[in-house]
């Protein structure tokens, strides 16, 4: 496992060094080349064609029901400051590229945040508004709207400086077995990726398409919800959404996804 893991690291560094990793030399032969970076590939590559078709068409992708509502919220004043997102940020397109760097340490507060936590920090500190609840339609929609502005841009996570301890905490979690079934994230998503557990092909567990519209859920859902489901599958206690453990794991797997395009909102079965 160690060799494969560091092979992945080497490939990631190589991919990051190249200017346009998503469009490698074999792009002409491989229509899915944009969804690969070195040894890393998005769940889109192994997804079923019907899910891909829906993801590829924003008119068909149900995620845009949430996005449309979030676009209304963007310009709606809320909280004691009487401000909307647009009052500070202008058009949401001004956030193009921003989501590629999350999770990261917030310059203003020194706190470590993913996009959800940053949105809630904005609401609390700038708007004087209550934070959106984990997995609420509002938080899912706003997170998706913000990440959508970076769609197609490569994930680009900084794991140096104050981010490093979060990366290391996430890496330790990822390689530590847990639950009655005593499995680590890495057991499925690194050691056995591409193998089958009954009809399920084990993915690399890439985060670049979240929030994702999952057919099984019949709704848009967050990365941390997916992690809770993973923990439940191995008969482990589900941990708190937006809590430190899953935030750390998000950091590790977002770094692992470096070079893969933001795909939010992806569609998966």
């Amino acid at each position: 496992m160690g060799a494969k893991r560091f092979g992945g690291l080497a490939a990631t560094i190589l991919a990051m060094t190249l200017a346009v990793p998503a469009f490698a030399s074999d792009a002409k032969d491989d229509p899915l080349a944009a969804y690969r970076s070195g040894e890393m590939y998005s769940g889109y590559v192994t997804g079923d064609p019907s899910s891909r078709e829906i993801q590829d068409d924003d008119m068909m992708n149900p995620s845009f029901l949430w996005v449309d509502k979030a676009a209304e919220l963007w310009t709606t004043a809320d909280g004691t400051a009487g401000k909307s997102c647009a009052d500070c940020h202008g058009d949401v397109e001004s956030l193009k590229g921003a989501a590629t760097k999350y999770p990261t340490t917030d310059a203003a507060t020194g706190k470590f945040m993913n996009v959800e936590l940053k949105i809630n920090d904005c609401r609390e500190r700038q708007m004087g508004a209550a934070p959106f609840k984990f997995e609420s339609d509002e938080l899912l929609g706003m997170t998706t709207l913000v990440k959508l502005q970076s769609r197609g841009m490569p994930m680009n996570i900084d794991i140096t400086g104050p981010n490093e301890k979060w990366f290391k905490k996430g890496e330790e979690f990822y390689f530590t077995s847990r639950g009655q079934l005593d499995l680590a994230c890495a057991d499925c998503h690194i050691t056995n990726e591409g193998m089958y557990m009954r009809a399920e092909k084990l993915s690399q567990g890439q985060p670049n398409g979240f929030p994702t519209y999952r057919m099984k859920w019949q709704k848009l859902g967050s990365l941390h919800r997916r992690m809770r489901g993973c923990n439940d599958n191995i008969r482990a206690e589900k941990l708190k959404g937006l809590g430190e453990d899953y935030l750390a794991v998000e950091t590790y797997i977002s770094w692992r996804a470096s070079g893969l395009p933001v795909e939010t909102p992806s569609v998966r079965k």
Partner: peptide
């Protein structure tokens, strides 16, 4: 080995409450 230990209750972590102290 990744194979779960089917008759074991000790040395595990973060076990779901319903399964604590129970073997598979």
């Amino acid at each position: 080995s990744l194979m779960p230990s089917f008759y074991r209750t000790a040395g595990l972590r973060q076990v779901k409450k319903d399964f604590v102290g129970k073997p598979i």
